[in-house]
Write a protein that binds this DNA or RNA. Structure first.
Lengths: 102, 102
DNA sequence: CGAAACTTGTCAATCATTGACAAATTTAAC
DNA sequence: GTTAAATTTGTCAATGATTGACAAGTTTCG
């Protein structure tokens, strides 16, 4: 899975034979805005991740990976960050985790 | 280097013998707010990255790595994202790069 | 103690995001 | 081609988050 998060949702939706209106209703969203999300013109609000997981019976962990991976990728692309950024990110996560355990 | 971005700035500043007020002035910032940034209570605005690079003669690329690495780490920590998120992020960056070249 | 450095609290102003709806365009069935 | 459904695009007020600014507090250290 390498697509953007918007493309990912669109595939889920069409594979399951739902229209924008139908999925939007289940996510408590305007269908026009869902269209924009699928086309990368708006952000999917992370508070709807669990709803999305429920609608398509997805693992929420898997969804978070897709979602945040997408966010990071967009930032890196926009600001032309080298791949090394991700290595540093990993180090810093561990640093944060240790901070709160000692 | 594993510290947060705030700690990173603080180290730069003290290593160079600057007070909050002095550095804040050079960054066009309120010293009280710089204090909050160093202590992780506010975000450093990315539009000031170049100024920061100039003040301390740093490589802007290196700075971006620290800065965005920090942002990603904070998000991952806050939302408990598995490390795999970063792998997916890398895939998606490449996907985005390819999108705009074909 | 006294002064400089630093931290914390607060709030209005600014900026970005969102929900909502209308209008335009595309798609697909007939 | 006509029509209806589906999708996309544009817009904007409302909401929410971020920022700058400044006052007041605390810490540090001579």
């Amino acid at each position: 899975m390498k697509a953007t998060f918007g493309e990912y949702i669109k595939k889920l939706r069409t594979d399951n034979g739902l229209t924008l209106t139908q999925l939007a209703f289940r996510l408590d969203l305007d269908s026009a805005n869902l269209s924009k999300i699928e086309n990368g013109k708006r952000e999917f609000d992370e508070k709807r991740l669990t709803k999305l997981a429920i609608v398509f019976s997805l693992d929420i962990e898997r969804l978070k990976i897709e979602y945040f991976g997408d966010q990071f990728a967009k930032k890196m692309y926009a600001y032309n960050c080298p791949t090394e950024t991700l290595v540093v990110a990993e180090e810093k996560v561990n640093y944060l985790k240790n901070m709160n355990t000692k």
